[in-house]
Design a protein around this nucleic acid. Sequence first.
RNA 1: GGCCCCAUCGUAUAGUGGCCUAGUACGCCGCCCUCUCACGGCGGUAACACGGGUUCGAAUCCCGUUGGGGUCACCA
Length: 493
Amino acid sequence: MGLVPAPFSTATGTDIRVRFCPSPTGTPHVGLIRTALFNWAYARHTGGKLIFRIEDTDAERDSEVSYLQLIDAMRWLNLDWDEGVELGGPHAPYRQSQRTDIYLGVIQQLKAAGHLYESFATAEEIEARNVANGRDPKQGYDNFERDLTEVERGAYRAEGRQPALRLRVPDTDLGFDDLVRGEITFPAGSFSDFVVVRPNGAPLYTFVNPVDDALMGITHVLRGEDLLSSTPRQIALYTALIEIGVADFVPRFGHLPYVLGEGNKKLSKRDPESNLFHHRDRGFIPEGLVNYLSLLGWSRTHDRDVFSIVELVKAFDVVDVNPNPARFDVKKAESINGDHIRLLPVNEFARRLVPYLGGLIKDDADTLLLLKAAPLVQERMQLLGEAQALLSFLFTADDALEFDADALPGAEGAEVLDAALTVLPGVEWTTEAIEAALRAELIEARGIKPRLAFGPLRTAISGKRISPPLFESMELLGRESTLARLAKLRAAL
RNA sequence: GGCCCCAUCGUAUAGUGGCCUAGUACGCCGCCCUCUCACGGCGGUAACACGGGUUCGAAUCCCGUUGGGGUCACCA
């Protein structure tokens, strides 16, 4: 059958050039970001370059808001790039909407060399033609305009029709060695000549994507599995580009597995879990999310799945990526995030908490208090968003504190509160002294079970059934507030 | 439907012919620790889709079946 002899890239080290080239539509999807991450990690691992390009050739769907969100996402996750939007580089501009002239030039060359031909048929006509010929309408275009004569083209134009441009694809098998899947061959005839330029002259993704990859010297294309079927078409285009001198080689391809949601369906854009910022809003930290995302189709070792981004870069190789689709498991993601939260230096942890505290931190005193409280909650959280429920009592006025209904004490409440109110005024105000005094009075002297003794006190000071450790919390709150809150709950019983 | 991809515990994975009576992590269950919730510790549950080959030996190689997914756009 004979493959088209395509000279694939031989880059293996610092000459590697990968790219991230999203379309700015909608909010960043976790699958898209996983693709960005793998490209980034591969560039950093090999010492190569990451190019960040924007594919905004569809004015109908593209938006500036979406573009800004992509930048935001990359920066938030600390995925930096070497050339591209916001940064420039030798192949600028990096937004396809600004590269029209470049495409026009390539189109002219390709057309002059006979690789592109004019196609006047509409979708309806193509389908009618298939039906008439007893062909499966799903078979698509049958290349029937490949050899239209000048007279025939003139006739179409006389009707006022403008032609789309199609690439003449070679009539041979087309194959490549996929970095994650191995040898893949598409038999000749698996696909037909495809449109690369609209009748209005606007080039399509199928054209601009490989053309830019060629122009920008991309050596490795790591992208979603959904693009696997279009790879032979792109190789066909590459072959033509090489012939006219626009490209020197065909990149290596690596098709990354899908990121699935619940069940067996692709994580849809409508699903909140697919939205990167949804996870940020809930309190994922970049370290945790990057770690988890890297585990979707890849693993570092057989026995450790919590690691730093440095360790990721050191170990990452695209050939180790697993070809089967992965499900996004929120529970696992949260667990890993919790591990990374615990890995943060406590000052850093406190600093990152601030945006999740709903404006609770208003001055230096609040900041100081937060710093003292941070160690109490750092190991009890998986998401930064959990902080507010745990810590808000420290930043609430005594008379404004509300007691949750499910936290209200039972029969022993009054005795416990009265006893605490009696002992606490006289103790030294440290965690140790408070605990010693309360244990002596409630547990030892009165024989109350710890659980029952401390529950009402917890409710009194925090208003909740669940809180940071009790005695530490009292110390942070101060004697005055503590006593006021105990009295308030006592009065409410 | 044509073509292509995929197939290990519920989930993510380790495994590249013998180290596998299949390892790890999350989840789940139990116990310990314990002022709540967590963290931590200990133990448990649970998988090679099926059928043929090849081989002294297969989760690992080959073929087929089944199942899932993608793609066949003048979207990207």
